[in-house]
């Protein structure tokens, strides 16, 4: 463990020391701003939609306008101004604390980096349907796929992309089916399998697909990986959080769901004194 003898090879760090290496591009002062080979001010600004550039930054590939428009629509589906939703409530609590809009919005976005809702379940949803299609192609039946997934949770219908908390059914799927149709998309093999799985769950458990399931299958049909979907959707919930923040911010400080002392249920240690 001597720090003096046998000087170590630090060439990897020496190469990177005080230097920036970028595969994406950057600002070449006097020449322009470059992004994945595109000249941003000429090729992108005014030529491509904001969502196309978001996807370019998230994946390194510029998608066609149609896919970007689909993503824009699904962002509307997944961010509502209802402060009962967990991430939105954090926005509202920021509002009632009179934080800055950026602070509250970013806090809400960070909250949605959750395994329970928001962005991380998309990784699980896309992974599930891609593995399921591979298994289906290899000969597993839809019933077997459903049975294997449910077996992981003691036979309960817990499959990522199906069922949802609070309510049964998902109005967002109908809206996105409409968008997909209007953009000229047809049902691909992942979405087709997702519908078959849904039918099986409806028949056996009266549970249907949720927006995660629809989105995961649709985007798998567009060739995206789970990680790419997660990256594109990094700030998925931001606008609903901002709306909830502003609603609370516009009222007197502390007006959002104030609690009396007795609104908290204490079930810890009884009152005790310090031994001297």
């Amino acid at each position: 463990m001597s720090s003096k003898s046998n000087k170590r090879d630090t060439s990897f760090w020496d190469k990177h020391r005080n230097k920036v290496f970028s595969k994406r591009g950057g600002w070449v002062i006097g020449k322009g701003v470059f992004n994945c080979g595109y000249d941003m001010m000429h090729d992108l600004v005014g030529e491509k939609s904001y969502m196309q550039v978001i996807i370019l930054n998230a994946t390194g590939r510029l998608p066609d306008r149609k896919l970007a428009d689909w993503f824009e629509a699904v962002h509307i589906c997944l961010s509502w101004p209802d402060p009962r939703i967990w991430c939105n409530q954090i926005g509202a609590l920021g509002g009632t604390m009179q934080t800055s809009v950026v602070s509250a919005t970013v806090a809400g976005v960070l909250a949605a980096d959750s395994k329970g809702y928001g962005t991380k379940p998309l990784v699980a949803g896309v992974s599930f349907i891609q593995k399921a299609l591979a298994a289906y192609t290899d000969g597993l039946s839809v019933a077997e796929i459903v049975s294997e997934e449910c077996a992981k949770y003691g036979g309960k219908p817990i499959i990522m992309g199906y069922a949802r908390p609070i309510a049964k059914g998902d109005e967002r799927i109908e809206a996105m089916e409409r968008v997909s149709k209007s953009l000229g998309y047809s049902v691909g093999p992942h979405l087709d399998l997702a519908y078959q799985i849904e039918q099986m769950l409806l028949d056996k458990f009266n549970e249907s697909m949720n927006i995660n399931g629809y989105m995961s299958a649709f985007l798998s049909d567009q060739g995206l990986t789970p990680e790419e979907v997660y990256q594109i959707c990094a700030v998925l919930v931001n606008s609903g959080v901002t709306a909830c923040y502003l609603d609370a911010y516009g009222r007197a400080g502390g007006a959002f769901m104030p609690l009396q002392c007795e609104d908290i249920e204490y079930h810890g240690k009884p009152a005790r004194g310090l031994s001297k």
């Binding site: 908390p165 609070i166 309510a167 049964k168 059914g169 998902d170 109005e171 609690l259 609104d263 908290i264 249920e265 204490y266 079930h267 810890g268 240690k269 009152a271």
Partner: peptide, 18 residues
């Protein structure tokens, strides 16, 4: 779309602070 009758807590509860 119908609301589930999932039992959500009526109150925040804690063992830490009273």
């Amino acid at each position: 779309v119908i609301r589930r009758d999932d039992p959500y807590a009526k109150k925040i509860s804690t063992k830490i602070w009273h």
